[in-house]
Design a binder for these strands. Structure first.
Length: 306
DNA sequence: CTCGATCCCTGGACGC
DNA sequence: TGCGTCCAGGGATCGA
C-alpha cells in the first residue's frame, strides 16, 4: 500500500531509470482511473520525461518538450511545468520494462520510450489516478494538499493539529492537513509518540504534538531507507520489496504484545480504517471510547435509485 | 465541522 | 476444486 515512503522509493527509482527519456507513443487499456485519457494520448508523445518527484502520495513526472536536436539553445522551454501526475492507489505500480518482456496482468498504460523500453502502469484495483496537467492546473491541483511531513515545522504542525477537534488519526490521514501519510505510518507514529488514535487534535498538549511530529518524521525517513513496507504486493520500480514491515510496532499486530509495555495491541475502526494501538502505553484520554472493530458490514439492501 | 456509510475495485484468505 | 463471503484501504461523496 503505497504511502509516502513507498511512493518516494518508486519515484527515486524512476528518476534513475527513465528521467531524460522521450515518450514515443502511448497505449491505453482501461482508463477509468485517468482524468482525461484523450489528453494523455495527445500530449505525451514527443515529450521528454524530466525530473521525477514525489508530492504527498503522488508522483510527478515533469514533462518537457523534447529538446531540439541542436544543443545549446536552452532558452524557450515552452509549456513550463507540465507534468504527468500518478497516484498508485492501493495496488498501482509504474516501472520500466523491456519491450519483449511479457505484459503483466492489469497493465493499463504503456509509454513507449525512445530507448526501446516501455514504462508500464499496472493497477489491479484501479484505485490509482493518472492525469496530464499543464503548469497552471498542476499548481492548482497541488495546492489542495497540506504540509509535507518530512519538512513541516514545529509551529505549522502544531497549528494544523490544534485547530481541529477531529481525532488525531483522522487528521494524520487527511491529505489536506499533511500530504503522504496513510494508515500504516499513522498507526506507527502514534504508537511511537504514545498517543491514542482517537484523541482529538485540539486536546494534544504541545509535548505530545511535537513528539508526534518527530516520531512521524523519523519513521518516514527510516521507512524510506528501507524502501517502504511491503504488506502484500508492493514492489518498487525495480521489482524489489520493501523491508520496513519488519519494523512495524502497531500496524498489523493485533493481539500481539506491545514491544514497549507488553500489553496486547488492539484494533479499532477509526476514520473508516483499522487502527492499531497499544492500550497500555497509548491510553485513551477521558471521554474517548472508540468502538471495537465492526465485525459485520451490512449488505446494501438494493439501492436501485439514484 | 466532523462523522460514518457507501462506493469504486480485485486478489487473497477462509469457511464449507 | 470451487463457491460465497469478508477484508484490505485511498479517496470522493453524501447525508446525519
Amino acid at each position: 500500500m503505497p504511502e509516502l515512503p513507498e511512493v518516494e522509493t518508486v519515484a527515486r527509482g524512476l528518476q534513475a531509470s527513465v528521467a531524460g527519456r522521450r515518450v514515443l507513443s502511448v497505449l491505453l487499456r482501461k482508463t477509468d482511473f485517468i482524468d482525461d485519457p484523450a489528453l494523455i494520448e495527445r500530449e505525451l508523445p514527443g515529450k521528454r520525461i524530466g525530473r521525477v518527484e514525489r508530492y504527498g502520495k503522488f508522483m510527478l513526472l515533469e514533462l518537457d518538450e523534447a529538446a531540439p536536436a541542436a544543443g545549446g539553445e536552452e532558452s524557450s522551454r515552452s509549456p513550463r511545468g507540465a507534468a504527468l501526475l500518478v497516484h498508485l492507489g492501493m495496488t498501482g505500480n509504474l516501472a520500466p520494462h523491456f519491450a519483449d518482456q511479457q505484459t503483466e496482468k492489469h497493465t493499463h498504460v504503456c509509454f513507449l520510450l525512445d530507448d526501446g523500453r516501455e514504462l508500464r502502469y499496472t493497477d489491479a484495483r484501479r484505485f490509482g489516478r493518472m492525469a496530464y496537467l499543464s503548469g497552471e492546473t498542476l499548481a492548482a491541483e497541488l495546492q489542495r494538499f497540506g504540509a509535507d511531513p518530512l519538512e513541516v515545522s514545529r509551529e505549522e504542525f502544531a497549528a494544523r493539529i490544534a485547530s481541529s477537534r477531529a481525532r488525531i488519526k483522522a487528521l494524520l490521514l487527511d491529505q489536506t492537513v499533511l500530504r503522504g501519510v496513510g494508515n500504516i505510518y499513522a498507526d506507527e507514529s502514534l504508537w511511537r509518540a504514545r498517543i491514542h488514535p482517537a484523541t482529538p487534535g485540539s486536546r494534544l498538549n504541545p509535548q505530545q504534538t511535537e513528539r508526534l511530529r518527530k516520531a512521524l518524521k523519523a519513521i518516514l525517513l527510516r521507512a524510506i531507507q528501507m524502501r517502504g513496507s511491503t504488506i502484500s504486493d508492493f514492489v518498487d520500480s525495480n521489482g524489489e520489496s520493501g523491508e520496513y514491515q519488519q519494523h512495524h510496532r502497531a500496524y498489523g499486530r493485533e493481539g500481539r504484545k506491545c514491544y514497549r509495555c507488553g500489553s496486547r495491541i488492539e484494533r479499532v475502526t477509526l476514520a473508516g480504517r483499522s487502527s492499531h494501538f497499544c492500550p497500555g502505553c497509548q491510553p485513551a484520554p477521558r471521554g474517548v471510547r472508540p468502538r471495537k472493530k465492526t465485525t459485520k458490514r451490512k449488505r446494501p439492501v438494493i439501492s436501485s435509485k439514484r
